[in-house]
């Protein structure tokens, strides 16, 4: 248990705590020198910091909002007559953008934008950029969340909802198993990057426990070391395989759960189609009640 605590504490010390820096140049009106010309595409890293750096760079480029576009790195065919500019993720710039969004567009909007940025959808970067631009042009920035008739805002809302849905589902579907050293360990494979939303939830719920949620697809870990809080890290930094074996008593408890899961169903109402609608197959490989021989029969 102690090892996680140390790890989390160390990580936290390393991270820079000042996240409320404001950049005066960001506050200034951007140059409206909209020159006719080709489109410049800012290609940013697929992360919250990457997208926010892209927003900063696109704005600071003063090419005019009409002539820039944001994209996240993904494999796709390049377009003709476009200039592609790779964005180098810069924590300072990202923090400034986050600070401005918080201050000018409000907490609610910040939440939507962060959720949309976690969604696995290529439209997100540009939609976030346009929403921020619109928000900063309004007298009351927080009203931007009401502008649902503006395409990009509708897109951000749609994407944020997708992320939130999956996060909410996983709050229920995550299954921890106890390792012999007392750590609770769970694997998930979500479509969107939901660890940042799951971690604070479980940090409150299992406040005094040490736990790890492993996003297998992205190679990310959310690590909670008891009362000290949680951090997000890449799984190369901490090999979960080396953490230890599953505890001995575990099998008994898993057996109890499987048995409960089976006996709670009403035979006269068996309805696998409905079950599939509500609990998609993609979640099941990591849920013990659906794995193993008996579990597969239930699918």
């Amino acid at each position: 248990m102690g090892q996680l605590r140390e790890l989390v504490e160390r990580r936290r010390r390393e991270a820079c705590p000042s996240d409320r820096l404001r950049c005066p140049s960001w506050e200034e009106e951007p140059g409206i020198m909209e020159t006719e010309g080709s489109m410049t595409v800012f290609v940013c890293e697929d992360s919250l910091d990457g997208i926010f750096t892209g927003v900063y760079d696109a704005w600071a480029s003063r090419l005019g909002h009409r002539n820039v576009r944001l994209e996240v790195e993904e494999e796709k065919t390049l377009e003709l007559f476009c200039r592609y500019t790779p964005v180098k993720t810069d924590m300072e710039k990202a923090k400034k953008v986050l600070g401005t969004i918080r201050e000018r567009l409000g907490e609610e909007c910040t939440e939507y934008i962060c959720q949309a940025a976690a969604c696995a959808d290529g439209r997100k970067a540009d939609a976030i950029y346009r929403m921020v631009v619109l928000g900063l042009s309004l007298e009351q920035g927080s009203q931007v969340t009401s502008c649902l008739t503006y395409g990009p805002v509708a897109t951000v809302m749609e994407l944020s909802q997708k992320t939130w849905h999956e996060a909410h589902k996983l709050m229920g579907f995550v299954r921890f198993s106890k390792l012999s050293n007392g750590i609770l360990y769970a694997k998930v494979e979500p479509k969107h990057q939901v660890l940042s939303f799951l971690a604070p939830y479980f940090a409150d719920r299992l406040r005094h426990e040490s736990w790890i949620i492993h996003d297998v697809g992205r190679g990310l870990l959310a690590v909670h070391g008891g009362d000290v809080g949680w951090v997000l890290m890449e799984d190369q930094d901490l090999n979960p395989e080396r953490l230890g074996q599953v505890a001995e008593k575990e099998e008994q408890i898993e057996e109890l759960w499987k048995c409960f899961h089976e006996s709670i169903a009403v035979e006269a109402r068996i309805n696998p189609k409905l079950q599939r609608q509500l609990l998609a197959m993609r979640f099941r490989p990591y849920m013990l009640e659906f794995t193993g021989e008996r579990g597969r029969e239930r699918m």
Partner: peptide, 21 residues
């Protein structure tokens, strides 16, 4: 100790009859 509650409630699994657990 342990535990919290959320306003919306959370489904943890679905049994073979499609009802929430």
């Amino acid at each position: 100790g342990m535990g919290n509650c959320t306003q919306a409630g959370i489904c943890h699994s679905f049994s073979a009859d499609g009802r929430c657990i």
